[in-house]
């Protein structure tokens, strides 16, 4: 399942958050949106998810236009920066939520829901925590619950907003490696937002660099470092040799 974005623009109260952005994420790829804060990377992710709607431009999932579809119809799995877990529901119920709100006709049987939630708990290595509440988990555990919850609806693509932003340095490193392994196993087309270039370069197949709502350069980590397209990319990546 690929993602294609064509000339997407979005303004908030006169301020251009994203301008004329075009990206293509190939099936099974893991791509990072990298940029300083206020560069429009989160807005771009929300436009792709259907949480915002563009002023102009189009969004395609695997060749099918989804620009005018609402968030759920696009079936994108979304992991929020601060996880946005349902505080009053247990870990189990958080993950089962997306299955339980389906209309009766397509809702899986109760036993099947239980089975699928347990599979997901296993996948994110939280089997022992099914009955806990979000407030009883560490940051890294919450992050994985949020991921399992997003995966429960069998999303066509996975979108992650600063997935490691709220974690401390050690957990962050572990989770980073875990996400890469996880992606290699599932091959689900994924796009994640980060402001940390080390993170982007270590995890992603391809990196999209944004600044002031404009895409500066797209390429594999090695290419970006070898051939920065402009002075911003050069400075932002902290490259200490001359172009």
């Amino acid at each position: 399942m690929s993602i294609r974005v064509e000339a997407l623009s979005k303004k908030f109260a006169g301020h251009a958050a994203v301008q004329d952005a075009s990206i293509e994420v190939g099936t099974g790829k893991l791509v990072a949106l990298l940029g300083p804060s206020g560069s429009g990377k989160t807005t771009l992710l929300r436009l792709i998810a259907g949480l915002e709607f563009p002023d102009s431009g189009r969004v395609f999932f695997h060749g099918e236009e989804v620009t005018h579809k609402n968030a759920y119809e696009r079936r994108a799995g979304f992991v929020f920066q601060h996880y946005a877990l349902f505080q009053h529901l247990s870990v189990f119920d958080n993950i089962a939520f997306g299955l339980e709100v389906r209309p009766r006709a397509t809702r899986p049987h109760r036993n099947e829901i239980r089975e699928r939630v347990h599979c997901l708990l296993q996948l994110v290595q939280l089997e022992a925590f099914a009955k806990r509440f979000p407030s009883q988990l560490s940051g890294g555990q919450r992050q994985r619950v949020a991921l399992a919850r997003a995966l429960a609806i069998e999303p066509r693509v996975l979108l992650l907003d600063e997935p490691f932003g709220a974690l401390d340095a050690k957990v962050r490193k572990e989770l980073r490696a875990w996400l890469r392994r996880f992606h290699d196993e599932t091959h689900i087309t994924s796009l994640f937002v980060t402001h940390d270039q080390e993170e982007a370069f270590e995890v992603a197949d391809e990196v999209v660099i944004l600044n002031h709502g404009h895409i500066q350069q797209i390429g594999a980590p090695g290419l970006l470092q070898r051939e920065p397209a402009n002075a911003f990319v050069h400075d932002f990546l902290g490259l200490d040799f001359q172009i």
């Binding site: 259907g50 949480l51 005018h68 609402n70 759920y72 119809e73």
Partner: peptide
């Protein structure tokens, strides 16, 4: 949400 603004009918409702 702004009750006074008329939205384009083509745009889907926000989540």
């Amino acid at each position: 949400q702004d009750l006074t603004t008329v939205r384009q009918s083509t745009r889907p409702r926000r989540a």
